[in-house]
Design a protein around this nucleic acid. Structure first.
Length: 270
DNA sequence: ATCGGGACCTGCTTGC
DNA sequence: TGCAAGCAGGTCCCGA
């Protein structure tokens, strides 16, 4: 399901419901997520107030009075706020119970995660992350310097969270199309001008996707139950053999590093 | 040190 | 129609 815009959408969706609320209970039906959920988790967080909810990379951070909870939605994680009790289904692995609502975490593939950390900014999953694509640290000077050092295909480079966070497969494809750069270009071969276009393309793509509430492919729904509408805006992703919106040539699909890669061979030159 | 590939899971779609 | 293979939005870890 989620890349950064989807995670941001979920984060914004749950925030008004949960900020300021005290955690009364945590029900872990299945702790076997990406990493096994700490059996002591309840002891550490029950009674604490969720002071603030933010996002860093694809993690949703619940700032508690002591420490923080880091959530990751993996590929198929969904968070919903229940105001009425609902019988848990097969993949409803975790409930966080508040006074008059429940945060329910559902994740069929169990690539998601829930981690308690005393100091989230120093957590090993967080500390080495690259800048936010919409933050001040992400600009053409920074990106040029990063890309110069690597011979990988540009698509891999921008999907690498040490370079910039939050750019997953869909938005990597979309950003490269917008910047008119072929996904297999060697990262180090990009000129400063091209890096500038790519920086702008990533910013535009991500911010537009956030504005549209993310991309619904199969099962993404925001925590308000609404789908994301960015799907209608996709230029290349999932459009194999369909005409390019710019030049009408058919969109190509190749597999790069095991991931579906879509591009227009006319508009995006090697 | 960097990079590619396999691994982790389940469910849906596709093709025989 | 039924079944198996293939594929999926993410990341980590290993070995070359």
């Amino acid at each position: 399901m989620p890349e950064l815009p989807e995670v941001e959408t979920v984060s914004r969706g749950i925030r008004p419901h949960l900020e300021g609320q005290a955690i009364q209970e945590i029900i872990i039906r299945n702790p076997n997520l990406r990493w096994r959920v700490d059996a002591q988790l309840s002891i550490k967080v029950v009674g604490q107030v969720v002071q603030k909810i933010t996002r860093r990379s694809k993690y949703i951070v619940w700032h508690l009075e002591q420490g923080a909870l880091l959530w990751h939605l993996g590929m198929t994680g969904v968070m919903r706020v229940l105001t009425e009790p609902e019988l848990p289904l097969k993949h409803d692995h975790i409930d966080v119970v508040f006074a008059n609502k429940i945060l329910r975490f559902t994740d069929p593939r169990r690539f998601g995660a829930l981690i308690f950390t005393e100091d989230w900014q120093k957590h090993s999953r967080i500390v080495n992350l690259g800048p936010e694509p919409l933050g001040p640290g992400f600009n053409n000077i920074y990106l040029k310097e990063k890309l110069e050092k690597t011979q990988r295909a540009i698509k891999f480079a921008i999907m690498d969270a040490h370079v910039v966070v939050g750019v997953g497969n869909i938005y990597a494809n979309e950003s490269l199309f917008l910047a008119r750069i072929h996904p297999q270009r060697i990262a180090a071969s990009l000129t400063l001008g091209e890096v500038g276009s790519l920086t702008a393309a990533v910013e535009i793509t991500i911010s537009k996707a956030i504005e549209f509430g993310g991309t619904t492919l199969k099962d993404f729904i925001g925590s308000d139950g609404k789908p994301g509408y960015f799907r209608n805006e996709l230029q290349v992703y999932g459009r194999k053999d369909e005409p390019c919106f710019a030049c009408r040539n058919p969109i190509q699909k190749i597999v790069l590093g095991g991931r579906a890669t879509y591009f227009c061979a006319q508009c995006q030159r090697l």
